[in-house]
């Protein structure tokens, strides 16, 4: 038996969770369970992300969306279950997680730029230190990424002097610079003033048109419908419903999604 991160077997069956999985899946979560103390936040999540998909995860606050996303790159260690990335079980302790994480980009609600580094350096530092590019190569690549998100004239600014929307675009450029196979976005527009949301969503649209594989937790329903190739509705640590966004929004099958959409409409 292989040693795993976290505990070994499924809590109910006492066996390894064994899901059928499609080998074309880029990232696959199998039977993820996560506890915070006595609070079970994920109740067995199965999710497959194929190359080129844009998966939008929606659901009420506290339903475990962020936790699921953070389990996908093992920023949060699941207590049970596996995460398979490009055919490799990355919950195996022998896997070099740093190398895996450098192939999975993640962007947070709170930007988390490095405030002591300039915008250029925020993007370039990982390219030098992890991708082992020379200073010149890293700067060229970082400039290109910043150009892509429309911040070529903010290169020498310090993050604290940028607007929220600009900071979030730097954070996206920082993740994109690593040329990840998949990008995870956790409510990246939720902390922004309404007039700044557009510029960030614009960057996401561009990524979608470039066929970047993306998983995004979002409260922007119209955006989820527009760019999502698949919609996942989570409630109480479970995936309640998933499918084509247009279909789910117009004809939700479950009572819970119906109620969720109605509540949203009320607000």
């Amino acid at each position: 038996m292989r040693v795993r991160r976290g505990t070994s077997a499924d809590p109910k069956s006492g066996r390894w969770p064994r899901g059928e999985w499609n080998s074309s899946g880029l990232i696959q979560a199998q039977g993820l369970h996560k506890w915070f103390g006595d609070n079970e936040v994920l109740h067995g999540i199965d999710l497959t992300v194929d190359t080129g998909e844009v998966i939008a995860i929606i659901g009420p606050s506290g339903s475990g969306k962020s936790t699921l996303l953070r389990c996908l790159n093992l920023l949060e260690l699941p207590d049970y279950g596996q995460v398979i990335f490009k055919g490799q079980d990355i919950t195996d302790v022998r896997v070099d997680l740093n190398a895996v994480r450098s192939r999975i980009g993640i962007v947070f609600q709170s930007y988390n730029l490095f405030p002591h580094l300039s915008v250029l350096e925020n993007v370039a530092i990982a390219l030098r230190e992890i991708r082992k590019l020379s200073r010149r190569e890293a700067d060229v690549a970082a400039r290109a990424e910043l150009h892509r998100v429309g911040l070529q004239d903010k290169i020498d600014a310090m993050p604290g002097h940028l607007s929220g929307g600009q900071q979030q675009r730097v954070a996206i450029a920082r993740a994109l610079g690593m040329k990840p196979d998949v990008m995870l976005f956790d409510e990246i527009t939720s902390a922004l003033d309404p007039e700044l949301v557009g510029e960030v969503l614009e960057v996401l649209r561009m990524l979608a048109s470039d066929h970047m594989t993306m998983v995004l937790v979002t409260h922007e329903m119209s955006f989820a419908r527009e760019v999502g190739t698949r919609l996942v509705f989570m409630d109480d640590g479970r995936i309640v419903e998933e499918g084509d966004p247009r279909q789910l929004f117009s004809a939700p099958k479950t009572e819970r999604l119906k109620r969720f959409l109605v509540d949203l409409g009320d607000r």
């Binding site: 790159n73 740093n98 895996v100 994480r101 450098s102 947070f108 988390n112 490095f114 990982a126």
Partner: peptide, 18 residues
């Protein structure tokens, strides 16, 4: 320091010591 700083660094693929 904000928790997010360590998370952002680890999320990029930096080791703990880096």
């Amino acid at each position: 320091l904000e928790r997010g700083q360590m998370e952002a660094a680890r999320g990029l693929g930096f080791s703990y010591s880096k």
